[in-house]
C-alpha cells in the first residue's frame, strides 16, 4: 500500500475530539463511560489502559457533577494515537483540587492521580477551573499497521 493510500480519506483518523455535556444525574456515568470507551477504541488504546480510563470515568461520574459550576458535567475529550486528554469543567473555584481529593480511596490514594500520567488544574474562561487529565498509551501493537500493508501480510 502506498503512503497516499494509507492516508486515504476513508482511513480512520487517529486524532479525534468530543465535547460532552451531561446533566447531573443518572445519565452521567453510562454516557461518559461509553463515549470515552468508543473514542479510546478508535484510538487503538490497549485494553489495560481502557480499563484505567473506565476507573477515571467512574470517579468523575461520582464526584464531578456536584463540583461543576452549573451542575452539569462538561468534558472535552481529545484522543490521538498516543493518548487521551480529558478537560473537566468548568468547575467551581477550588473544584479541581476537591475533585482530586474526592477520588481518594483508603490504601490507594487519589484514583485520578494514580492512573493519570498528568493531572493539573487550570483556570477556565468562566471564572472557574478545569481539571485536566492526560492518559498516555502506546497504541495496540496489532493495530499499528494499516490493513493490507506489506508489513501486515
Amino acid at each position: 500500500m502506498s503512503a497516499e493510500a494509507a492516508d486515504a480519506p476513508h482511513a480512520p483518523a487517529k486524532t479525534n475530539s468530543a465535547l460532552l455535556r451531561i446533566a447531573g444525574g443518572p445519565l452521567v456515568a453510562p454516557v461518559l463511560t461509553r463515549v470515552v470507551a468508543m473514542m479510546l477504541a478508535r484510538a487503538d488504546c490497549p485494553v489495560d489502559r481502557l480499563d484505567d480510563a473506565m476507573l477515571i470515568c467512574d470517579a468523575l461520574s461520582a464526584h464531578a457533577p456536584a463540583l461543576a459550576a452549573d451542575g452539569n458535567l462538561a468534558v472535552t475529550i481529545l484522543t490521538d494515537g498516543g493518548g487521551m486528554t480529558l478537560r473537566i469543567g468548568a468547575l467551581r473555584p477550588g473544584g479541581g483540587e476537591r475533585l482530586r481529593r474526592a477520588s481518594t480511596l483508603p490504601g490507594v490514594g487519589s484514583v485520578l492521580e494514580s492512573i493519570a500520567d498528568e493531572l493539573r488544574v487550570e483556570a477556565s474562561a468562566e471564572d472557574g477551573e478545569e481539571l485536566i487529565l492526560d492518559l498516555h498509551f502506546a497504541a495496540a501493537e496489532g493495530d499499528r499497521q494499516p490493513a493490507g500493508s506489506p508489513e501486515s501480510r
Binding site: 465535547l19 455535556r21 446533566a23 445519565l27 453510562p30 454516557v31 461509553r34 463515549v35 470507551a37
Partner: peptide
C-alpha cells in the same frame, strides 16, 4: 428530565459514538 449534548467532528466513524451515547441514555432511562 435528563439531557446531554455531544459535539464531534462530522466523520463517519463518529456516528458510532453518537449511537453508543444514545444507547447509554436509553438504557439509563
Amino acid at each position: 428530565t435528563a439531557n446531554m449534548e455531544l459535539a464531534l467532528p462530522a466523520r463517519a466513524e463518529n456516528i458510532a459514538i453518537v449511537r453508543h451515547a444514545l444507547g447509554a441514555l436509553g438504557d439509563a432511562c
